[in-house]
Structures are given as C-alpha cells and as structure tokens.
C-alpha cells in the first residue's frame, strides 16, 4: 500500500477544509469512515477517485462528533452518515417503521463489516464490477472503456447501462430511494440537500462516478419522511450464496396499505442498474388496488419491462420478475 497521511477532522467544515487544502497542494484525497472498502481498494491499487490515483491524504470522519446519530423529530428521521450498518439494524425506530432500511443493512456483508461499515460508506462505495476491481482501465477508473460489454457481463446491468454497465453496489441505496430519502451533502460552498434521483447519476450523465459528490464533498446524513401508519416495507436480496456478497438482484418495496388495498407503492431495484432503479410502471399497477397473486405477477412483469440484457445476464430478467412478485405479495398480505 502507498504511504498516506491520515488527518483527523473535528467538524465537517474542517473535514472539507482539509480535503480542499490537500487538493490545492496537488495531493489526492479521500474521506474515510469505516474504511472497510477504501483500505482494500488502496491495498489492491484500484483507482478510487478517477483521475487522482491512490489517495495521498485520508480525511478521517470518525473523529467528527455527532455524525453517527439517528434522530427522530416529528415527521422526519435523520440518520448521520457515520451510523454503522449494525446500528441501523438494531435501531428500534428503523426496525419498526423503516423496516426496508434495517433489512437492507442486515443483508450487507458480514457482522464484522456491519459493525464497522457506515451508511454513507455503503451508499457511496465504488462498484464491485470485476473489471474495475481487478484494475482494468475502465470508465470507473478514469479510462474510456467498459470491458463488460463484449466480455464477462453476468453480473452487469440490464437497465440504464451505457457507456458503463456497472450495477450500483449498495443495498442501502434502493431502500433509501424507496423511502423517499433526501441526501445532505456538505462541501466548500456549504450544504445542499438532494433527492435520490438528483444524488445518484447514470453513466450517461457521468461515466466515472455513481453520484454527484465532488472530491471535497461529504455525504453528511440522510433524511427520511416518517411513514404513515399503513406503511410497511421490505428488502429482498438475491445473492449467489447465503451471505457476504452483493445483490444479483434486490427489491426494496414500500407499500402504503389501507386494509388489503394498496394506496401507494414504491419499488426500487438493486443489482440491475448503475443507480437504484425505480420502476414507476410497476408501482402504478398497485395504486388503489387489492393485491392479489395475479396482480403481483403483473407487477413483477411490469418491473422488467424495458430491460435490455447483455450477452450473459438475461437470467436477471426472470429473477427480477420473481423477486418483485414475491416481495410485493408477501408484504401486502403480511398481517
């Protein structure tokens, strides 16, 4: 691993200032929270920030107080970016009211990683495409190719691909988008709050990055509207083993139920697109309807409408269809 400087920030403003200073000095910089993935990228010499190589400076966010707090005030639940995945799993409000987020957090990696890895780190982690992770000079590493197109694309995107066909690796991201989260970003110009569609970016907008964060910007927290009484939610993740890997396909489903009638649905897919992939066509079928097995099957079919598989990932279409159908039906009919 390349030698680097660790700088402990006491406040978010100081963290941003430290990053700016490093960039002004011509040094590459990364913010570090849990570091579970960042350190491995550095050891493997995989380009973390395109164009800047391995970081010369790590700005440590763990020394910023209050970044790991979950606060529930009236209509909004705010979760600090440094909140560990395990804290999300165990938090009573998140478990009971924002179940999809707790289930998504619980599906990540291993207990060790969940105790160290953070919400922000999970959301902004770099792709797990095997070309990117093996050091290929692809778009995500600042290059100008996607090796998966004519290569091994079993794990790649069936929606929203081009010019890069990575899938977004985060389990929390689909859950957050399904819960209509907003993302609070702190940078040199102060802070801004973004919706999911504005925070995550498709490769067609920016092939190198998965979100709008600049090198000197931090994902400080997310805010979630407190769900109404009829709202229930679930996260269903399909993996190629029972634990410790990313989603082949996942579905974050939030249903606002009035008895057995669905008032409103939000369905966001993971593992199939370069961003958390919302399927409005499938959601619309549920609005105002009693959820029957037949309707759930139609919703599953609608969720894969428009999918464009590559040469080796067409299996994700029936898989996605099945996951959505089952998750919607199970959630709607759960007591």
């Amino acid at each position: 691993m390349k030698a680097f400087t660790n700088q402990n920030a006491r406040t978010l403003d100081e963290a941003v200032a430290l990053a700016q200073q490093a960039l002004r000095d011509g040094r590459s910089v990364s913010f570090v929270g849990g570091g579970t993935d960042l350190l491995q990228l550095m050891k493997d010499k995989v380009v973390n920030r395109p164009g800047s190589g391995d970081p010369d400076v790590l700005v440590n966010l763990k020394t910023v107080e209050g970044l790991d707090e979950v606060t529930s005030s009236g209509q909004v639940v705010t979760i600090g970016g440094l909140t560990t995945l395990e804290a999300l799993v165990e938090h009573p409000v998140i478990r009971d009211r924002l179940t999809v987020l707790a289930e998504a957090a619980e599906s990540v990696a291993t207990p060790q990683i969940r105790h160290t890895g953070t919400l922000a780190g999970n959301v902004v982690q770099r792709p797990w495409c095997w070309y990117y992770r093996n050091g290929f000079p692809c778009y995500k590493a600042g290059g100008n190719r996607c090796f998966s197109i004519a290569g091994e694309n079993q794990l790649h995107a069936i929606f929203g691909g081009g010019p890069s066909y990575i899938v977004h690796p985060s389990d929390l991201a689909p859950a957050l988008v399904a819960l209509d989260a907003t993302f609070r970003v702190v940078g040199p110009e102060g802070e801004r709050t973004l919706s999911g569609p504005d925070f995550f970016v498709l490769p067609s907008q920016d092939a190198e990055h998965e979100n709008v964060l600049a090198d000197d910007e931090v994902l400080a927290s997310v805010a979630l509207p407190a769900p109404g009484d009829g709202v229930r939610s679930a996260y269903h993740k399909i993996m190629d083993r029972e634990a410790w890997t990313h989603a082949l396909v996942s579905a974050a489903v939030v249903l606002d139920m009035d008895g057995d009638v669905c008032r409103e649905a939000r369905i966001v897919l993971g593992g199939v697109a370069p961003v958390p992939w919302r399927v409005p066509g499938a959601e619309a079928l549920l609005a105002g309807q009693r959820v029957t097995p037949e309707l759930a099957r139609e919703v599953g079919a609608a969720a894969v409408a428009g999918a464009r598989p590559l040469s080796k990932n067409a299996y994700k279409i029936p898989l996605t269809r099945g996951v959505v159908e089952r998750t919607v039906l199970a959630l709607a009919t759960s007591a």
């Binding site: 095997w130 091994e152 190629d240 083993r241 029972e242 410790w244």
Partner: peptide
Amino acid sequence: NGHPLTAGYYGARHVTHMD
C-alpha cells in the same frame, strides 16, 4: 485479455457457514 476476474473468497463465491 487472459486475466482472471474472480480471485479470492469474494469473487470465487466460496460457501459461507450459512450455506
């Protein structure tokens, strides 16, 4: 390109205790 893509416990998908 002759490169291995799935080296390691993560890539080669070895079973976990849960499997």
